[in-house]
Design a protein around this nucleic acid. Structure first.
Lengths: 258, 258
DNA sequence: CGGGGGTTTGAGTCCGTTCAAAATACGTGG
DNA sequence: CCACGTATTTTGAACGGACTCAAACCCCCG
């Protein structure tokens, strides 16, 4: 269950930079859980946190290890990978910048439930468990915010389960592209949308609950239908409406009752 | 989104019984979230709560309605049914006795995310939102307990997603039977295990992420292989090991990395 | 006794998988 | 900077599990 021993500090040898943004001026302050804290508490948070840069693929924390603290994604995206008791591994989420990581394990008092690794170049803050606990005790609202976040995650996970049962791979992939578009989509000179896939094909497949071969074929099919063109990890979407139409066509859907 | 107007009291016309178990002597006290409360608080909880009986299929609360409070399942089981924005309905969980219901919406400050209906004959407690809030404010540990519960639910939901992608219907069904066995399994005179299915075939299918026809065929296949026999809603499992073996055979499993 | 929903059964189809091999991308050391 | 070995991605062909559709069946209830 616990292949390697726990460590004292965040894993990997990412260099610690003390020059990171202040929590008070953080771009994500409004959305982040910490946003409920007073300026004074934020300053204490500021002083206590450390700041690290990660290269793509670098592990942030490992499933099964005791939770050392909470991470915040300042920039980049982080992949969550879970291995169950049968040894089956799957990507469970691609977490966007601005969100916290590892709070579930820390607040729940359990080891990390998944391995987190940087999907792209990423910069993360790390807040030690002692500081988190302290802030949590001081201001109950912080706990509420984290509760809300988990509740949202749960809703999202249940929706993913429904989609898995209801939608085909093509539709799930289209949905994934739209999510990416909202996060990191750019508009090209000719008006078409550009975005980069932050994941290897394999990991996209795992996230979608499909095999890599199927993803490849789906990509080709979308290209042949003029929905999108793929060049390496860059995707071009000439007509957003065409992609949106993909989601509507729910082929064989269970009759919704009442 | 909100088909009917919210109501003042728990839905349906279940008769309120004041003679229910006291929270202090509740069989689930040790497991339940309220277990962290002091005897004094438990007495206040006792006084404030109401107690209702539900017939199978009766709605406890409805998706989209504002959260009025938290329910506790004293006996019986409750089905959670979720309808997404496309109108696709799916059973998301079968909640066993001893667990709370509706806390996610209430604590998260959002409307109920799903419709809850009694799967079997059930007896539930209802705790008004005002009382929940009061206890929550007074004792932070209660909030922690609920956080833990949602975190566990999330882990379970993610596992279900993985199972959906990895396992066949037959294995998912076998897994479902084993869950039921742990909850409500009895041992017959001849040593075989007996249990009742608390759900209609349709709902089992939905919970498993399959069609009713497929469930029927799976049932037949299990009977032909001597794993279990089905008589209406009663299931007989002559050899538990044979059923357990079903779970091991993960046919085409994604190579687990590292 | 005649609905009516739920369940079962059958036949045919399709989507996604499996397996195997070729092609491409990638990182590393020379 | 190029050559090489490895990992990933792509392609092809064949298979199979679960789905669709449609009809028959059943049981419960009025």
């Amino acid at each position: 269950m616990n292949p390697t021993a726990p460590r004292e500090t965040p894993e990997g040898s990412a260099c610690t930079i003390h020059a990171g943004e202040s929590c008070l001026t953080c771009a994500w302050r409004a959305d982040a859980e910490w946003g409920v804290l007073s300026d004074e508490d934020l300053r204490r948070l500021d002083a206590a946190r450390s700041f690290n840069a990660y290269r793509p693929g670098q592990v942030v924390y490992t499933q099964g290890h005791p939770a050392l603290g909470v991470f915040c994604i300042e920039s980049g995206e982080v992949l969550l990978r879970r291995t169950d008791e049968h040894g089956t591994a799957a990507v469970t989420a691609l977490v966007p910048a601005g969100r916290a990581l590892g709070y579930r394990a820390l607040l729940g008092g359990v080891p990390y439930e998944e391995t987190a690794e940087a999907a792209s170049e990423a910069r993360l803050c790390f807040i030690d468990r002692a500081m988190v606990r302290e802030l949590l005790d001081k201001d109950c609202r912080l706990g509420h915010r984290f509760f809300r976040r988990v509740a949202e995650d749960l809703t999202a996970s249940e929706q993913a389960r429904i989609d898995m049962a209801t939608l085909g791979v093509r539709q799930r992939f289209a949905h994934f592209l739209l999510t990416l578009k909202d996060r990191r989509g750019r508009v090209d000179a000719d008006g078409s949308i550009l975005l980069d896939l932050p994941l290897a094909r394999q990991d996209i497949a795992s996230l979608l609950g499909a095999r890599p071969e199927t993803v490849t074929r789906t990509v080709r099919a979308l290209e042949e239908d003029g929905i999108a063109t793929f060049d390496g990890r860059t995707v071009r979407i000439p007509d957003l409406d065409a992609l949106l139409d993909e989601l509507e066509e729910r082929s064989g859907e269970p009759r919704h009752q009442r």
